[in-house]
Amino acid sequence: METAVTKTGTEDKIWGGGNQPLKVSYGKMMMWFFIVSDALTFSGFLAAYGFSRFKFIDSWPIADEVFNHFPFLHGVDAPMYYVALMTFILIFSSVTMVLAVDAGHQMKQKKVIFYMFLTIIGGAIFVGSQAWEWKNFIKGEYGAVETKGGQILQFVDAEGHRVGLKEIAIIDNNQDRAQHEERNGLWYESEATLPTYTIDEIRAGFAKNKDLVIRTQILTEKGEKTVLSREESLRRLTNDAIGIVEGANLRHNEYGTPLFANFFFFITGFHGFHVFSGVVINIIIFINVILGTYERRKNYEMVEKVGLYWHFVDLVWVFVFTFFYLV
């Protein structure tokens, strides 16, 4: 690189040109500035999440109740374990990346290949895990009832354990409401997939099972959801409830306010997209390392630059982990 720079005779003066006041190459400096702008984008999202959360500070969903799945452990309440594992995988892939950069400094091609390979595998596992988290969140677990005011009512038994819609509903075989699709009704109108149960089936089942009560979105002083009395539960279910919510999407969320789902999809989605593009960029550089491009170039700075990006993705995850799962 230095051979391409013409001597200007001003090498001793910092701002005279032909000098690098920050003592980094153009590429690395621009990677840093890109990271700054990307960091500001992510902080914009996370700060907006904070805004919405402060706005609904007394009714925000409890993350431990939302993300409590672990692979192969069905029905076991395992809050945070899986996301902690994901965090480890990402931190570890950051470690292998920095080891690859370190090996690159010593011009050890074989080691760079090995560590970059581990990094790519780690990144792929992480993206896969995130997809799995999304799947669980979209599918939902117990189901809930939504009110006119857009509030979520969940069902619990006398001990306070959650009860799923399928345990409550008394199926009414006489009604056969079909989903309105464009091909079987008005051609310009259609509706979303119908929920498994109707609100009347839930009302009937709830009236019959005297143990059941309703839990609202509102948090108590202790940070738990408010549980209504039996009479109050019946009143709300009869007067306010208008529909069934199963799982979460951008409009409805069985765990609480739809904003929670919106931010979850948007922020973890945007981060997941960064991980995905990081993996793709890593693969490109990995191929270059195998081909010996950097051996011939006699420096592995490209590995260092993608390394910076990769660490940044890890850095963002550390914050997403804290604000979505811990705080």
């Binding site: 006041p21 920050l22 840093w32 700054v36 950069v101």
Partner: peptide, 16 residues
């Protein structure tokens, strides 16, 4: 440590 910010010049570090 990982992004090696400690090794960069003061100017770059502060800018970022």
């Amino acid at each position: 440590s990982f992004m090696h910010m400690e090794g960069e010049t003061k100017g770059l570090r502060r800018a970022v």
